[in-house]
Nucleic acid binder design. Sequence first.
DNA 1: CGGTTTCGGTTGTATAGTACAACGGTTTGT
DNA 2: ACAAACCGTTGTACTATACAACCGAAACCG
Lengths: 152, 152
Amino acid sequence: MSEGAREAAVETIQRELTAFARRARATAARLHPELPLVSYTLLAHIHDRAGCSATDLAAHYLLDKSTVSRQLASLEKLGLVERRPDPDDHRVQVVHPTEEGRRVLASTQASRHAAYEERLRDWSAEDLARFAAYLVRYNAAVTPGPPETPRR
Amino acid sequence: MSEGAREAAVETIQRELTAFARRARATAARLHPELPLVSYTLLAHIHDRAGCSATDLAAHYLLDKSTVSRQLASLEKLGLVERRPDPDDHRVQVVHPTEEGRRVLASTQASRHAAYEERLRDWSAEDLARFAAYLVRYNAAVTPGPPETPRR
DNA sequence: CGGTTTCGGTTGTATAGTACAACGGTTTGT
DNA sequence: ACAAACCGTTGTACTATACAACCGAAACCG
């Protein structure tokens, strides 16, 4: 394979990933109008980590703490998360999903999953596995790294 | 390969693409603070297609035409694109980059390309080609379809 | 033709998401 | 005990976005 081909592949990856990112918001809005993409991702992260601080979220998604603060206020208002002061450190608000939050998250994830299944219907299991592996490998190179709350 | 493996691959694809989309804005802001992601993608598409209409852009990026209209007004104000009425159809504004627009786009693309090269440095040419092909295939299933300006 | 419909685009209005800066309360380190 | 670092909120401003109402041009149809 020529050097030019390598260049071309990088160009294509850049173009396609950018196009995807650009459309993600609109796609998410169609998939689940009731839970915007941002709220969805934050809620999903909170759920995955079974309780975390606002600062964790800000670091993970490269957001300002004020943004996270407002997003959490909004999620709380919707009754999807609870914030409770950490008994060990009164500065920290430990956030975790409510029952309703878990329910909404599950339903949203189901509709997203169905949409992905639909789009990937014609793919062979082998192609899916390879594509997934490539994405994991790609994101691993970009993601801030492992620390992510040194769990005191 | 089991059915469960297929499921797992779809889950992974969904999770990784979502994470990517969620960080794309911040990443783009770091890569080229001077040209926001949205402007960048619109300008790149205008350049690739060597002149296109606002409606083309709206369809390609799933944006409302009003959004595109304002984005183009902003790009025009920055002197990066020109809009000229199509002589064959007075409703259409044909948009294309100015000399300055091409220059800025080239510089932005260079910095983005360098960042991508860096991240993909360890990949073999074969893996890059396969990953690129998967992304193209994936996006093709989502994109509104081939017409994309049926060129009258 | 002539009227209606469709189409491309702009503008008014409203909302979400975001950043930055200033601040208040809490903990930590010296 | 005082200063520094830290967590989070709030004030402010801006960008991106959608939806709806509209204008003018073209296409369609009877």
